[in-house]
Design a protein around this nucleic acid. Sequence first.
DNA 1: AGATCTACTTAGCATAGAAGCA
DNA 2: TGCTTCTATGCTAAGTAGATCT
Length: 765
Amino acid sequence: MSGDHGRGDSQVNSGSKGSESHKHKDKHKEKEHKHKDHKKDKEREKLKHCNSEHKEYSEKKHKDKQKLRHSDGSSDKHREKHKDKDKEKRKEDKSLSSHSNRTKKEKENGYVRERSPAAIKSEPEDDNGFYLSPKHNKATKPAVYRFEYKPKKVKVEHDKKAKKRKHEYEDDEEDEYTKHKKKTKDKKATEGKKAKKEDEEKWKWWEEERYTDGSKWRFLEHKGPVFAPPYEPLPDKVKFYYDRKAMKLSAPAEEVATFFAKMLDHEYTTKDIFRKNFYKDWRKEMTSEEKSVITDLNKCDFREMSEYFKAQSEARKQMSKEEKQKIKEENERILQEYGFCIMDNHKERIGNFRIEPPGLFRGRGDHPKMGMLKRRIRPEDIIINCSKDSKQPKPPPGTKWKEVRHDNKVTWLVSWTENIQGSIKYIMLNPSSRIKGEKDWQKYETARRLKKCVDRIRSQYRDDWKSKEMRIRQRAVALYFIDKLALRAGNEKEEGETADTVGCCSLRVEHIKLYPKMDEQEYVVEFDFLGKDSIRYYNKIPVEKRVFKNLQLFLENKQPEDDLFDRLNTSILNKHLQELMDGLTAKVFRTYNASITLQQQLKELTCPEDSIPAKILSYNRANRAVAILCNHQRAPPKTFEKSMQNLQTKIDEKQKQLSAARKQLKAAKADHKASHDEKSKKAVEVKRKAVQRIEEQLMKLQVQATDREENKQIALGTSKLNYLDPRISVAWCKKWAIPIEKIYNKTQREKFAWAIDMAEKDYEF
DNA sequence: AGATCTACTTAGCATAGAAGCA
DNA sequence: TGCTTCTATGCTAAGTAGATCT
C-alpha cells in the first residue's frame, strides 16, 4: 500500500470541536457585519442538527442577529450601500497591496449552510509512515499510460496495437484488457450485426478499441429533447389577491406567480434577496396595467394558488391504479422514444432528455440570484448535435432549432444557454453509456498512476516548503492541503454571481486560524469555510512545523478577506502538476486518496469470520471513512430520530425474545437430561435453532442501528459514485463472497458494469 | 496573463416508487 | 390492504479544467 495516508477509522464526532467552531463563527459574523435575513434558514438548520449544542448555537446566532437588527434598522438599501462602499474600499486596498493583484471576492454571506459541528477527526499522523513507503520512487522510469492524453492522428486502436501494448505496459489492468479481448473474440465474430435488445444490454464496450484522435463518436442519431409542458392557466375559481382584492392575471404573469405560489411553504420565499429578485423578474412578465396595480409584493396573496397546487398533488396521490398505470405507460413511451440515442451502432441511454422547466432559481447557500426567473426554453434556444448522416431530430411543428451542428469532438446531444448565469446546459448520455464509462475508467487509471509516483511528489512538495520563492512555497503548502485533506482545487469565481464559497487555492485569511499550541498538540490549523454547495468544511489538524511557519508567513500583513495563497491559482497549480505527472490535476488527488483509503480500510476492517451483514457494515464504515475525508455531508433525514427509536424498540423486543428462547432451551435441556429420550433430544435441537435464529436477527438489527447512527449526517453515495474505484468494491465482494447487489443497486451496477465484469478478487488499486 | 467560454464531473436534495409493517 | 418508512432516481446547481480570446 504505497503512499497511503494511513488514515484512521475516523468517525463522526460531534464533540467540543463543534462548539469551538461556533464561537469562532459567531465572532466572525459580528466583526464583519453580516446581517442578512436568514432566520428561516437558521430554523431549518436547527431542525437539521439534532444535537443540543447546535440548537444552542442557532439560538445564539439568532440573538446576535436580533441585536444587529436593533442596532441598525437596516433596510435593504442601507445594506446595499454598505456593501458597495465596502467593495470600493477593498478595491482600493487591493491596488495598493503589493502582493495581491488578483480580483478579490466580496465576502457577503450571512447565511451559513454548514451542518455538522465537526464531522472530521483530525488524526495525529505519523508523518514518516505517511511519506515513506516500501514501493518507492519509480520516478526515473518513463511514465506509462493506459490512455493517451494528447492524441495525434491515429484514429482507432487496433487489436495488434493493443496486444503490443500489453508487453510494453506492466499495468495489471492492461493484461486484463487484452485477456478479455481474446476471450470474446470468437463470440464477437458470430455476433454480426446488432440485434437490438439483449446484445445491446450486454455490450461490453470495455473490450473494444477506443478513439484516440480526440473524437468521441462516428455516428450519432437522436430525437432531440422533450420540452416542458406548456403552461396551463389556472381555473377561474382559483384566485390571486392583491391588497385583498381578487385579480385576474395575464397568462405570463400568472405563470410566474404560480412558481412563487408553489414555493410558499419554503422559507426562502421570506428571504429579502429571493423576494427582490423574484419581484423584479415577475414585473417583466406583467402587462402595463398589472404593473401599475401591483406595486408591492407584500400585498400579494398567493395562498389560494398554493392551496390549489397542494390539492392537486394530493389528488395525484389518490389516483386509481389504472390512472397511475396509464401515466406510467405514457412516461415509458416517452422514455422509449426520446430516452435513447444511437451512437456508433449502439443504442445508448440518455441521461437527461427533458429540458429543464421554467421556475424560480434557487441556488445553494446564500446565493445572490435566488428567486430569479428561470425562463422557459424554446426550440429556438436549442442547439442540436448529431452526425451529418443521421436522421436529424425535428423541432416541434412551427418552430426551428437555433442551430444543428455536427461536432464529434464533444459528447453532448443538445445544448442551450441558461439565463441565470448565462452558462451552457447540456443533454448527455447516461453513466452506463460507453462514453461516460470510458472516461470514468480513465479517471481511475490516472489515479492509479498517481499512486505510483505520489511518494516522489510528496517529497518534492516537502522540499518546496523551503523554497526561496514565495510562489513555490505557497504552491507546495496548497498541494499539501489538497493531498492531506482532500480539498478541492478552488477556482476563482466571479464576485456577486454566486454564493461565496472557496476551495484550496481560493482560501482567504479569514478561513484559517493558527494555534501554535492547542491541548496536547502543536502547530494546529483550524479550517472553517464554505465549500462547494455551501457545505461547511470545519477541521482542526496539526501540521508540520514548516507548514505552520509558512502559513504564518503567508498571513503577514493581510486582511481577513485577502487570499491566503496570493501567488497561486488553480491554473498555476495544475500546470505544475502536469509537469509532475501527465494527466495530473488537483482533483486526481481526491480520487486517489479516496480510493486508496477505501482499499486500505477494507483490508483493515473486514474480519474473515464475520457474517455477511457484519462484513457489509465494515464496507459501509470504509465507505464512510472516505465520505468523511471528502466532507460529503447530508441533512439528517427529517424522520431520523423517530426511525432510530423504532429500531431501538425492535431491538429491545428481540432481546426479550432471545432471553425467552434461551430459557426455553435451558428447560428443554434439563428435560432431556432427565428423560434421555429421542423426543426431548429433538426438542433441544429445535430450541437451539430458535435461539440461534433470534441471535442472528438481533445481530442484524444491531448492525443496522450502528450503521444508521454513524451515517446520520454523512452521505455515502457521492463517494461511491464518483471517487471510489469500483473495481476495489467488486474485488472485495468476490473475495468475501458478498453478492454485488448488497453494495451496488441496479443503477450503480449499470454504471459500473465494466468494473464488475473485469475485476477479479485480487484486484489492487 | 488574465478573462471568458466550453465541456464535462461532482453534488445534495426532493420526490416517486418500492418495501416493510400492522 | 392501506399506511408508513426507506431507497432509488431525477433534477439541476456548482464545481474542475482546458481551450480560446483579448
